[in-house]
Amino acid sequence: MSHVVLSGVCVAYDGVTVVSGLDLDVASGEWLSLIGPNGAGKTSLLRAIARLVPFDGEVRIGEDPSSALGARELARRVAVLHQEPQIPPGMTVSQYVLLGRSPHLGYFGRETGRDRRVVSEVLRRLSLEGLASRPVEHLSGGERQRAAIARALAQQAPVLLIDEPTTSLDVGRQQEVLELIDAIRLEQGLTVIAAMHELTLAGQYSSRLALLVAGRLVAVGPPKEILREPVISQHYGAQVKVIDLNGSGTAVVPVRA
């Protein structure tokens, strides 16, 4: 029920098409990463799946077209980890994570004990209990990202969309965040669709990669098939070397001619 099917998805801003006629199936429990050069339409595609932009074509979440779902129903099925979350001044971590319960509440509804229990559980899973009363703005970059993940998990949605989860984090925090997401994916069978910049990490964590160029899907497949020197050079216009890491994926390394 948590597979995502895109058929003929087109996104245009003010008449300029940024995603055109895209078909893609994402299986339940899979981690699919969208890769591609800047402006390829990765973020726009994620926004279309989350219904944050108008689009043509159809997005099915489980059995239902997303257009048939109400806003809250959609948010109960799809959670989004935004690229640069806006940190509300003065808001504590637990209040911030509690916002993730919004899709489960009526318009005038208030959080119940059950919602607080879910949040408490999420905070424990992400080792944020000690920070529960701290304002989010006082956290470090990695901790903030964890708080944002916690909020998305509090939505209890089977599909998680991630937009550039590791921008502005150091390499250690990048690994930490991705490991965390992957662990939870495996625990709970989440379907993860991520827009990724960093090709090596994308290859290491994803079951499949989808390469977008100028709004079109150029290639889909396991990382080994996509991360090949001619493909990267052609579409990114980059000089790279792809190194096999003997079982722990492939490294895509820029080289200077």
Binding site: S2, R76, T92, V93, S94, Q95, L98, G113, R114, R116, R117, V118, V119, S120, E121, V122, L123, R124, R125, A132, S133, R134, L153, A154, Q155, Q156, A157, P158, Q188, G189, L190
Partner: peptide, 18 residues
């Protein structure tokens, strides 16, 4: 519904605005 399963956990959640 997948996601975090609610187990027995303390009801009082620190840091909520009151």
């Amino acid at each position: 519904m997948l996601g975090v399963r609610a187990r027995a956990a303390p009801l009082a959640l620190a840091g909520l605005p009151r």
